[in-house]
Design a protein around this nucleic acid. Structure first.
Lengths: 236, 236
DNA sequence: GGCTGCTTGTGAACGTGTGCACGTAGGCGG
DNA sequence: CCGCCTACGTGCACACGTTCACAAGCAGCC
């Protein structure tokens, strides 16, 4: 029976990186590539590469390596990149426009199929050669495009309602750029990119290197900060 | 010596989300918040919230919950958000300009301190009220700003050399938007945001829902695809 | 054809992260 | 002052992901 082979989420997230590395190696006229070389290009270790690739099947040749073209094809197929995936961007503000103008999407098989905004004054504008449409047009747009990916590039307060609209219109893959936690029905994939969160994570580690939090002792923190109640506990 | 409390990476990544949830709850005039409510706002489960917060210290009150103001302060302190972190954006193309114009950074304590580009024709331009400077100015800029976060918004081929320049100039926190794997010296934090990779991950799961890869059997795939051995040449 | 060297594929050990379930501590009403 | 109720803090078991180490398998060569 044709086992669909469960692929761990962590592996899936690395496949696109391998694919890019393979493209580079292909440019360099290499016909085969070892797990070690691929690991170097992808910034991981060789054992991880081999384990990840083994989930796709036994596409390597012992003593030789992986055939670049063949592995590229298999990986593209597994990732669903053998055909284009149209993208609908909701929210034509700063970020939405930048995304629309970013050529990297179309180049990688994700053409901007539509732009949508709630603001009536923006509807009708042409951005990157695409006419901005209203939120009401979403259901028809999605119906006409088939499998589509929705990108939320609205302010935080609008994110959840847009996600609801998208889900209701039949979109089952959503990428959220709004700085808000949103929930979607079962069967809908949601990924998020939160720029401020990334900076805050960097801030955490940077600060640790700089010498830890201000008032590295909890007791001292009580001086700077505000204890919630008369009696505040110490570290433990 | 006060134990610096090791905080798991997964927890660190969630702290900013909690912080945002706390801000919302504070807006709503709530003085205390339970782990359950916080979990709901952050899109995780309550046990995880409690475990995460316990790494910061015992800031809750049993039977009551967490004091919103106090927890906000402690969390901000731990994340290093009690002061601003200036940001230098390298690469003033589409994405770089969008990031510069995105108000969400300054609002959250990450003011754009400088814009840098390798293209001499762009140097001197004013973007978002900031004058674009040349790559040569990086060392002086960093020296004058102290702890700073570097954002790479260049094309992929320039990413590694920019990362080298930043590291050499003393930047120890880097956020990479370029679609390339880059390496940095020990002691430098690197995080990456790759838009195309996110779309490709969504594509993977979308396709699985749509009925799996074309040629769902490996044997069949060899018919559709090209066996590596005799001769190859397609996909391209 | 058989030997050698190289690289894959994978079982097993290890480390990290998650979630349950419950002990525990603090507030509150009587 | 006491007992009840609530929600935190955490030990423990489990799942997931990573890494090591090595047998297996293939190509090349004599």
């Amino acid at each position: 029976m044709t086992e669909p082979r469960r692929i761990p989420e962590a592996t899936v997230a690395r496949l696109p990186v391998y694919l890019r590395a393979l493209a580079e190696e292909s440019e360099a006229k290499a016909t085969t590539i070892s797990s070690e070389r691929l690991a170097e290009l992808a910034g991981v270790n060789a054992a991880k590469v081999r384990k990840d690739l083994s989930y796709l099947g036994s596409y390597g040749t012992r003593g030789v390596g992986y055939d670049v073209e063949y592995l590229t094809f298999q990986m593209s197929r597994e990732l669903g990149l053998t055909h284009d995936w149209p993208v609908i961007i909701v929210g034509v503000g700063n970020l939405g426009q930048a995304l629309a103008n970013y050529g990297g999407f179309r180049d990688r098989g994700f053409p901007i199929a539509a732009l949508v905004d709630a603001d009536p004054t923006k509807v009708g504008d042409i951005v990157h050669g695409v006419r901005v449409q209203g939120l009401d047009d979403l259901p028809d747009l999605v119906a006409g495009l088939g499998s589509v990916i929705g990108i939320i590039a609205t302010p935080a307060h609008a994110a959840q309602s847009v996600a609801d609209l998208l889900s209701h219109a039949g979109v089952t893959s959503i990428l959220n750029f709004a700085p808000a936690v949103i929930s979607v029905p079962d069967g809908v994939s949601l990924r998020k990119v939160d720029l401020a969160v990334e900076l805050q994570i960097l801030s955490f580690y940077q600060q640790r290197r700089d010498g830890g939090p201000v008032g590295d002792d909890t007791a001292k923190a009580r001086v700077t900060g505000l204890p919630p109640a008369p009696a505040a506990g110490a570290t433990g």
